[in-house]
Design a protein around this nucleic acid. Structure first.
Lengths: 203, 203
DNA sequence: CTTGCCATGTTGTCACTGTAAACATTTCGA
DNA sequence: TCGAAATGTTTACAGTGACAACATGGCAAG
């Protein structure tokens, strides 16, 4: 059986072909529209009706593709994690792996949260309800594997790699969250310093 | 001028004196009821009507004491921060200050998040809008001062205390958040280990 | 004590939300 | 070709935060 493609396919313009009753790929279009709204991040809630209007479809049409609003948000969250993972992988490569790459990975994490606040928050603040997850394609799972592998390669001699990985993750995640909630202000240099303290050194 | 008492005063039973038109101290009662609901943490939203019913008052009565729902949530959030700060101070003292006290402070932070998930999340996830804050009484401000002082006393020889403080805060905050969102499971021993890595050692 | 002001609480209502049910249209396989 | 399945629409309903108009009772001035 063909595994259901869960990733977003931003294909056509989005609006359905002017008067057509059926849309073509509503699910993808809705997710794309949702992401756009999250990028705009007016701070307000993400309502079904507004989303449906963006896509040019009636509100209840969304229920043909998602059991409820939560499921829709889950899909958006998942896409968020996938993007985060992609950017991190990219940063890792660009820095040439190793300790530098690991640090870049961490900084990218925080920067992502700062640049896409609503998406980042949505992605993580979502109470992981049991969705039958295709483990190989789950954004969160991918990101963690990357992290764990990074620890292995960047800090080869560390005594407890799992603890170290958790430490690193918690650090960047906390930094990201504190910035999102405006407990502390975004400051690239500061982030580099704080992250470097753990990711660069041994710890 | 008398500074307005912003803290919660859980005095009487809560329900207004059986048939009395006026309540006595509705504001405090509402906050107390709100905290109770957050402790129960059914996961659902905190609605004005439910809250009003708990206190035995009509929904719109709340608007005599809070400009809008956000303000009410702000008050709850503030109380949450105050409680967190109190517990941390207590832990600090119990551990006799110093490096041990500092570590205890950090663990208490994470434990608090685990024990009062809804309250913790509410307290931090709230977009710090400009409320004219009585700085000396603001929960968050108090907590940060405590942290900053802790770094000073626990790690006297550290090169950049501000960065170290941020590091410590981000670490425990990230740990707390990841646990709340079920990215990682609560595990007292694990927390001690991870926190100890930074708070105990130098870093 | 009386009177009237004003803080506080209530009722009614509005726009908006997620979502369910019934109906319409299109696509696609037998 | 034809009917079933997939997809979209309309209508409706209960619940939400919020506002305006009205009711009540405590309290201070006369």
């Amino acid at each position: 059986m063909a595994s259901k493609d869960n990733s977003v396919n931003i294909k056509s313009g989005g609006a359905k072909a002017s008067g057509a009753y059926h849309h073509g790929d509503l699910r993808a279009a809705v997710i794309a529209a949702g992401l756009k709204r999250l990028e705009a991040d007016d701070g307000g809630e993400l309502g079904l009706r507004a989303l449906a209007r963006d896509v040019g479809v009636s509100a209840t049409a969304l229920y043909r593709h998602f059991p409820d609003k939560e499921a829709l948000l889950d899909a958006l969250a998942d896409e968020g994690l996938r993007r985060l993972g992609a950017r991190q992988a990219q940063a890792w490569l660009k820095a040439g792996g190793g300790r530098n790459g690991f640090k870049a990975t961490g900084i990218t994490y925080v920067r992502f949260a700062h640049e896409e606040p609503a998406l980042f928050r949505l992605s993580f603040t979502r109470q992981m309800r049991e969705r039958t997850v295709d483990v190989d394609n789950d954004g969160g799972e991918v990101a963690y594997k990357l992290l764990r592998a990074g620890v292995g390669e960047a800090l080869p001699g560390v005594e407890d790699p799992d603890t170290a990985a958790l430490h690193a993750w918690a650090l960047v995640h906390g930094l990201a969250m504190l910035i999102l909630d405006r407990r502390i202000e975004w400051d690239e240099e500061m982030v580099e310093q704080v992250v470097g303290l753990t990711f660069g050194g041994i710890c």
